[in-house]
Amino acid sequence: MQAIIILLVFTFMARASNNMIQTTVPLIAREYFNSTEAEVGLLSSIISVSLFIATMWVNARLDSAKRRILFEASTLLYFLTFLIYPFVNYIGLWLTSIAVGFLLGIIMPNVATASSIIGRDQETRERVIALYTFALSLSLTIGPVIESIILRYFTLRDVFLFFSVFSAIMILLSPKLPFPAEKPGRVKFKLSSIWGRASFRVAIYNNAMYSLPFAMLTAFGGIYAIEYFHANNSLVYLLFSAFFTTSFATRLYISVRPIRDVKYASLSMSMLTIVGLVIMTISPNIYLYAISLAILGVPHGLTYPLSLIVISRDSKDDERNLMNSAFSSIMTIIGILSPIALGVSAELMGLRYMTIIVEASVVAFTWLLYRSLRELNPKASLVKNTPNLIR
């Protein structure tokens, strides 16, 4: 129980502070430095590039003991970035964001791996995974509300000082987070062999399907609300709360009733994403826009736990870090390209018509997801004697 509590508290602090950076840095770039949409997209991509390098070329190639040392050091450096952000100039904003991306590339994959090794049986581990993703959503629900309150009295730059408390708690908890025991000589990063598993491809396509919608919301969701509906900064973060509240509720539900049928849940998630994006595109006012965000929160709540669960069902403990690192690396590549593509599209077509491109990407990845689901091992797809999430 202690290991679970440590995992959940650490997860909450890491994701709340990480999300604050993802949503606040674009606004600082826009409001303080008059950045264009393309520059905002590139800035978000630079963070992802740095995260990718850390995840694929560092984290995936270290054994458990060395990863733990680097992990604990990264939490300390991560804390220091929150003390730097309030005082940066334009160049400093980019350099600090690059550093943050690298540190998160060390921190977050190890937290995901920890969530999948707590528990003696598969059903218990899947409940812990669901609780882990529940903590992610809880942080994304409460974090924007906290930031909205702070912004009533302080500036965007000041927010980083308040959230430095979150990163300080991470330093205290980092030595107690569980790491997997690995066999000597097992650390080998071979993406070709991992890609051959249908379960891994399902995990990738699940997340890839939702990558552009989520990149659009984090990088341009606030700007969209400000430009089209004249929302202020405080209201922007309340809108994010609508999105993350439904995500939170979804993950709370699957922590009580674990996902049984991965195929059914994955395709249902894709359909909800398309519906939410269509409503966003046609929304004439901020109220319908808020409804679209709430709908999109449901697949956001399902995407990540579905991917982790299908990986955990089809891998051993000493393979888990490699699988999670490969998964994170590929998703980071998509995360690098997504904001750039969205930024260019926003400049050429406008923010509203940019959503059409996002809808097309969802349809394309849903087709790839469907093809991989047909090849999925029954062990990874369906668990017997477990309450069904959707049916």
Rank of each mutant, 00 (worst) to 15 (best):
I149T: 09
A130Y: 07
I149R: 11
E126K: 09
E126L: 08
P144N: 12
R152D: 04
T155G: 07
T155Y: 03
L151R: 14
E147C: 12
F134W: 14
L140R: 07
S139H: 05
F134M: 10
T141E: 11
I150S: 07
L151S: 14
Y132F: 15
F134Y: 15
L131M: 15
I142R: 01
T133S: 05
A135I: 11
L151K: 15
E126S: 11
E126Q: 12
L151C: 13
L131N: 11
L131D: 00
I150C: 06
F134S: 06
T133M: 09
L131S: 12
L138H: 11
L136I: 12
A130R: 06
L136D: 06
L131I: 00
S139E: 09
A130M: 07
F154N: 13
P144A: 05
V128Q: 04
L138T: 14
F154W: 07
E147P: 05
E126T: 11
P144W: 05
R127K: 12
L136R: 02
S148G: 12
Y153A: 10
I146S: 10
I150A: 07
R127Q: 01
T133L: 04
S139K: 03
L138Q: 05
S139W: 01
I142K: 08
T141K: 05
I150P: 07
E126I: 09
T141P: 10
I142H: 00
R152H: 09
Y153T: 11
L131K: 13
F154L: 15
T141F: 15
A130I: 05
L140V: 11
E147I: 09
F134G: 06
S137G: 15
S137N: 09
L140S: 12
S137L: 00
I149K: 08
I129G: 00
S139V: 01
I149W: 10
F154Q: 14
R152Q: 13
F134A: 11
L131V: 02
V145W: 04
T141M: 15
T155M: 00
L136S: 06
I150M: 06
L136N: 14
T141A: 04
G143A: 05
